[in-house]
Structure formats: structure tokens, C-alpha cells
Design a protein around this nucleic acid. Structure first.
Lengths: 251, 251
DNA sequence: ATGATAGTCGTCTCATTGACGATAACCAGT
DNA sequence: ACTGGTTATCGTCAATGAGACGACTATCAT
């Protein structure tokens, strides 16, 4: 088969970001308001075009930085670090009415941030609870503001990203990516509770995470920032795979 | 940002396929020999360009059919059906010396097939054991023919696909995709053994798979094609998620 | 018949989990 | 200083599931 570029249809390649964090006991995602058609005025996931000579992960990291100031793990001079991984690629021919766009979605897990600095093209950027965008099983949000449906196929991408995060914290130590550098067992438990939308037994959770070698490393310090008895501070250990995994209740 | 197509660099979008099967107790992948540069004469994963108006999964299914005659689940008039899912997307700017190519890799799990019909562009297509291409932990293949390293970044894609298959049969019923429509517990066990490269206790395995509701459904028949005592025949049940999962030994 | 091969049922033990009691250490308010 | 509220941490007990095996069954090849 000859490789004359003119023989290929014009594909645009973009990255879209599912940036998740836990704020006030809820799983939240970063969304931007679209300033131009199509879907003008609708909320969407942050994203943009991949530049020539730019790797996919680099494009995702660049968009993340432009949108939030966050750096991905491994990036130089990181102010705040976040976990970034490729999620999936969406290439339905009709997903963008303007042209053929293939979007490589990425998933970012970030600790709670003050508030996004609205840089970049988007003229509105904010956190919104995942429940206010995705219809959760057993009814949606009652009186809260709703941000869905998102532009393009971003509802589907967001759902896929949330599901990936929910399942990945089962068998990996990725839940620590939602926490500040030092955190308590209780704070980590509240991350699991927010991401899964369940409540966990504090005693069993404590036994589980402190009993898994390499998951948590005590720093020696303690804090009382959650009220109650002072809690030991930990940072994430080297282990990335949890064996046996944390189990989601009622499965 | 304006959307003038000429403002975007020319991206080519392809699909690459990691087609896995189990043949004579070994995990094998489908490879084709490249007939032209770059990497002329090297082995590579099957794949090709995504057509205008064609969905990514459709492009993968089409390439699969062209290369092997296999149909993906859900395709009409399927001769033999195989499981197909998206794996990951590879977009390193240097991965193809000719132009910027973003490749959406797909994973196919197929039952053992007689032998691939060498249709399509490739002038050589065959099964090769995964061990003869990837250096396995603890040494490679001794006297056997080697097919690696594969062209482009296909070694990495193959590794990722194999790892996905290895982990996915832990918590899903996907191992049945490697089996013919009717199979015995022992045949299913040999699939796990080949994919994981371990040996499993037949008694514990039998207890586990027959005790998981929805995993296997007895057809009533039995066979003696493996020698020894006749074994009950099953087909895959409706369950897709195994809970609790099958555990890989010595982890 | 006899051995080889493979399938199926049971038993025992150990590790892990879920439910939950009890205690410890902080804070705010009286 | 006490009291109650809150969160952290340790312990106990029963049920579940997995690994290690023993025992028995049903076919085939010789």
C-alpha cells in the first residue's frame, strides 16, 4: 500500500482529560464551558489538539498544565503533582460535526486543589461533582445544579474515566493520588468512600491498609486537622499493586 | 481556536491488532511479515489504516476479517467469533519514520483456529508463541525460532496486549473466548495455564469454576477428546465478571 | 486384565474479611 | 475540671474462600 499522505482522509487527533479529585466528600471532575460552536455554552471536558512532534502523554500533560497548573508525575518543576494515564480512544466518525476527530482520552487523579485558575481558551472552568453530571444508579441529584449532558461524547468519556478510577483503586494504591503528600488513614478512607459512594468500616479499613506491606509509610508526625483523636500521618509507600485488593462492598 | 483543517498536521490513524489464541499449550499471537519498507522482512502485528467514516472498532473488525476470516462478536454472519476490545493508543511522533501515525491497538481473543488464510496485503501470516517474541521473565526461548523483535513499537504493543489478557482472565470470564463453543473444565484450565504460564491444581480449579454462578452452563453432553475419563461439556454462561476473581498463583 | 490418563468429590487448614465491642486522645462548651 | 462529641486505633469472633492433598471414577491403549 502506498503511503501518499493525500490518500488519507484528514484526521485530527486530540486529547481529552477526565480530571478527578475529591472535594468535600464528593468525587468531582474538571469541566470547562465551551465558548464557541458546536455545543456553545455547554460544559465539556478540557482538551485540545495534539501538536506535531508531540507525544500523546505530553499533549495531555500540557493541556492539564494550561488548564489547571497541575503537573503530571515525572514532569520537571512540578508545583503539584498528579497521576496521569491514558484512558481510551474515541473515534466515532460523527462525534464532532466539523471534521473527523479521534480523541485520546486521559485520566488524571489529583489531590484537592484550591480552585482552578481559568487560563487557556476556556472562558469558564470549574469543578463539578460527578453525580451532577452522570445519572447515578438509583436516581440523580435532587436540587443541585446540573451540568450535564456534556458536549460531544464527553458524558461517555467521563463515565468511562470514573469507572476506571473506581475499579483501579481496588487493586492499586492509586487512591493516594487524591491525597496531599501526607495524609491520615481516615483521609484515605474518605477518598474511597467518596469515589465509591459507600461508607466503609473505619476499623476494618484501618486494619487493611496498615496491614498491606508497602502501601503506607508512617512519617512519624500526627495531625488533628480532622478533629478527634490525633491521627498518624503517612505518605504513599512504594507498592503500586494491592494484593489482596481492597474490596468494594456489596458486590 | 479556529478549526481550519489545514492548520493541523497530517495525522494518519491506524489500528493494530494483538490477536491471541492458545495452541498446543502455548499462548500464541498472530503476526505478519512485512513486504515493504520500513522494517521490510520483519514480523509485525496485523493492522491497517482507518477508513473515512469508519469507526475504530469497525476498522479493527475489518482488518481482523481480512487477515484471518475471524469475525468479532456482534458482527453479522460470523463464521467464527472472537472477542475484540480496544487496548491502547500509541502515538510517539517517531514510531513510524514516514509520517505521524497514531495507532489504536485492539486486543482479540480467539479460539484455536486451523491456520490463518494468508489473505490481504501481508505476504506471510502465521501464529507464533508469545514466548518466541517477548523475552519472558527468567530467560527466553532456548532452541526455538525467534520472531522478535517486531517492527515499529509492536513489541511493546504485544506486551501490553498479553498483560491485558493475563490480568483480564483473572476477574472476567474472558478465558472462555479462547475455547470452542463447547468445552470441558480441563480445557478451560489449560487455557489459564497457557496464558499465565503456570500449572493449576485440577481439583481446586474445578471447584472454583463450577462453583461460580453464571460462569459455566452444562450442556448435558460429555466428551473424551482429551483422553481419560469423559468430561462434562459446558458453554460460557452469562456472567462476565468473576466475583471473587480467579487468583494467579504466587503473587 | 492392567496401567495410564483425566475428571470429580471431599476434607483439612490457614488467611482474610465483615461485624462490632472497647479504649484512647483530642476539642468545645459548661 | 468535667462532659459529651468526634475520630483513631486495637481486639475478638464467626464465616468465607483458597491451597494442599487423598480418594475414587471412567475411559483408552496394550
Amino acid at each position: 500500500m502506498p503511503y501518499d499522505p493525500s490518500a488519507f482522509p484528514p484526521f485530527a487527533v486530540t486529547v481529552d482529560l477526565v480530571v478527578l479529585t475529591v472535594r468535600s466528600h464528593a468525587l468531582c471532575a474538571l469541566i470547562v464551558r465551551r465558548g464557541e460552536p458546536p455545543h456553545q455554552g455547554r460544559w465539556a471536558l478540557p482538551g485540545g489538539f495534539v501538536l506535531p512532534g508531540e507525544d500523546l502523554a505530553a499533549a495531555a500533560a500540557r493541556e492539564l498544565d494550561e488548564e489547571t497548573g497541575l503537573r503530571a508525575y515525572g514532569t520537571e518543576g512540578s508545583a503539584t503533582e498528579a497521576h496521569l494515564e491514558q484512558l481510551a480512544t474515541y473515534g466515532d466518525p460523527q462525534r464532532d460535526p466539523r471534521m473527523r476527530v479521534v480523541s485520546v482520552a486521559h485520566l488524571v487523579l489529583a489531590p484537592d486543589l484550591p480552585t482552578p485558575r481559568p487560563g487557556g481558551d476556556a472562558y469558564g472552568v470549574r469543578w463539578a461533582s460527578v453525580d451532577s453530571m452522570i445519572s447515578s444508579p438509583g436516581g440523580g441529584v435532587r436540587d443541585a445544579e446540573r451540568f450535564g449532558p456534556l458536549a460531544f461524547d464527553h458524558d461517555r468519556i467521563l463515565r468511562d474515566g470514573v469507572e476506571r478510577a473506581r475499579s483501579k483503586i481496588e487493586y492499586s494504591s492509586l487512591a493516594t493520588a487524591f491525597c496531599p503528600p501526607e495524609f491520615t488513614v481516615g483521609e484515605l478512607r474518605r477518598v474511597y468512600e467518596a469515589v465509591w459512594g459507600v461508607s466503609l468500616d473505619p476499623r476494618n479499613f484501618h486494619r487493611k491498609v496498615t496491614g498491606t506491606p508497602g502501601f503506607l509509610v508512617a512519617t512519624g508526625g500526627s495531625t488533628t486537622r480532622q478533629g478527634g483523636r490525633p491521627a498518624q500521618l503517612f505518605h504513599a509507600g512504594g507498592a503500586t499493586l494491592l494484593n489482596p485488593p481492597m474490596l468494594r462492598p456489596e458486590s
